[in-house]
Nucleic acid binder design. Structure first.
Length: 487
RNA sequence: CGGGGUGUGGCGCAGACUGGUAGCGCACUCGCUUGGGGUGCGAGUGGUCGCCGGUUCAAAUCCGGCCACCCCGACCA
């Protein structure tokens, strides 16, 4: 049971989104700042969401054939330097260990910012034959990147993630794997986190250092800015060549492996907050909520208390027996109104109110977190509480997705003139995704970024349109791309 | 790393301009009261005012320096 928390109102979302976000994260007790700059503490309610994400995503990852392993947090400095683009991309943000055991180290060690190098070093030793391919590993771990500017969950120096690394015999198979994982992420984030996505390829400028192609899932936050929620990279043979991952194929030819890597991080928690939260607090999709149902007992006199608590307890037990994550709010000395607000702040999807009246009538009150006002409340027969709760939780999951989907749809705009695009992005807020034809030239992308601060978020895959004219230079453009201001 | 802001009980703030030995709200403890949308009343606990130095009989307050954190930008999951 949580502690009673302070009762200050949160900063309204519409007034100051960044303040609102910090308020929610801390008052819903998801996380707190640490004594070390840029690092954060995951509190139990926040970590529970990560655990729910891990449990389901781990299942989905394993279903594709990958297995979990664990590689060390410390990597020889020289490893990072083996792939030119990779070191260029990560060198500025690595933390380096120079001393150990009271002595200066022979070779400095970096705290992993990602594990491509150490994993591929091991791959080179493990892979000799096409019979050993594909090799598909995943690890759940922490990584460290010395970020200039940090925000709880969205960008912290240390963060938790899973990173998958695979090696394949052919380009085609590796490319297929890249897209398979992209689809695993899309399915998981949309179905579990109820966050609708834009899916596509990254531009060269936004590509992972060392990758040949990067694919992304992008979501829209409540303030109209985009957030990259996961990436899947086709690495080609870049790392295989740098780390000499070679195998003999069926015709006894020595070949370099084709590789992928892919990951999602605890940033997803920030996305959940920013997509679903409102001025009352957090709103959690039932599938990842640490507590899915809370039972709030209501009573006056001691004799009422006994009856209500007995009934509330048996209802909570029945829900629990049906595999729902339940809490019975038995805290004393707090009014029901206080508890209602408290659980709303914490984002619990379904609240059950139970008092003497309900026991007398055989019905209790359901209050849904996804709806507002009178609409949020309904009655359910006590005898059917388990079935009804499951049904309603399913509806809440869908309703949160539908609300977010509508918000996303309303924030996607197509432009065919640069001045109109610029006007939209420069306007107050300037949020949302702009869908425009782009020729693919970095110069045009740079112009948009410099003049509007929006970046290319994704280029949808497999566009079948007739093509059009680049919104910047007017030359012919095969594909359209999404641009947005991003976190 | 540039711009802005803030550092005073656990949290949010006042006090600073005009130096005089620290105050308010919330939280916390105890008692009563109340309980279907943040109950009410009373009594309490808790602070060397971010750090270092200077001015002064006297510094939260004035002066100098430093540090930390937050927000906005550039860079990035």
């Amino acid at each position: 049971m949580p502690e009673k928390q302070d009762t200050r109102k949160v900063t309204p979302r519409s007034q100051d989104f960044a303040e609102w976000y910090n308020d929610i994260v801390q008052r819903a007790e998801l996380a707190d700042y640490s004594p070390v700059r840029g690092c954060m503490v995951f509190r139990p309610d926040g970590f529970a969401i990560w655990e729910a994400i891990q449990a389901e995503l781990d299942r989905r990852i394993k279903r594709t054939g990958a297995r979990n392993a664990y590689f060390p947090v410390l990597i020889p400095m020289s490893f990072l330097k083996k792939e030119a683009k990779h070191v260029e991309g990560f060198a500025p943000e690595v933390a380096v260990v120079t001393h150990g055991g009271g002595k200066e180290l022979e070779e400095p060690l970096v705290v992993r910012p990602t594990s491509e190098t150490i994993i591929n070093h091991m791959f080179a030793q493990w892979i000799h034959s096409h019979r050993e391919l594909p090799m598909m590993l995943n690890q759940w771990c922490n990584v460290l990147r010395w970020e200039m500017r940090t925000r709880l969950f969205l960008r912290t120096a240390e963060f938790l993630w899973q990173e998958g690394h695979t090696a394949h015999a052919t380009r085609e198979e590796a490319e297929r794997e890249t897209l398979t994982m992209l689809e695993v992420y899309r399915g998981f984030v949309e179905e579990y986190l109820a966050i609708p996505l834009i899916v596509g390829k990254k531009s060269a400028a936004e590509r992972f250092p060392g990758a040949e192609e990067t694919y992304t899932i992008e979501a829209l936050m409540g303030d109209g800015r985009a957030l990259q929620c996961g990436t899947s990279h086709f690495l080609g043979q870049n790392f295989a060549k740098a780390f000499e991952i070679k195998f003999l194929d069926e015709s006894n030819q020595l070949r370099f492996a084709w590789q992928t890597s892919w990951g999602v991080s605890t940033r997803l928690l920030g996305a959940v907050v920013m997509v679903h939260g409102d001025d009352q607090g957090l709103r959690l999709p039932p599938l990842v909520a640490g507590t899915q149902v809370v039972v709030v007992p209501i009573y006056r006199k001691p004799e009422e208390e006994a009856a209500v608590m007995a009934s509330a307890r048996s209802i909570a037990e029945a829900l629990q027996a049906a595999d729902l994550r339940v809490q019975l709010d038995s805290r004393e000395g707090l009014t029901p109104g206080f508890k209602f607000n408290d659980w709303e702040m914490r984002g619990v999807p379904l609240r059950i109110e139970l008092g003497p009246r309900d026991i007398a009538s055989g019905e209790l009150v359901f209050a849904r977190r996804d709806l507002k006002g009178a609409e949020a409340k309904s009655k359910a027969a006590i005898s059917e509480v388990t079935v009804r709760a499951k049904t309603v939780l399913g509806q809440i999951q869908k309703s949160l997705f539908d609300q977010a989907k509508a918000a996303l749809a309303s924030q996607i705009r197509e432009f065919d003139s640069y001045s109109a695009l610029r006007k939209q992005l420069e306007g107050e807020g300037g949020g949302g995704f702009a869908l425009v034809y782009w020729c693919g030239e970095p110069a045009c992308e740079t112009k948009i970024r410099e003049e509007t601060r929006a970046t290319c978020r994704a280029i949808p895959i497999g566009q079948s349109g007739a093509g059009g004219k680049c919104i910047v230079c007017g030359k012919s453009a095969a594909d359209r791309a999404y641009f947005a201001k991003a976190y």
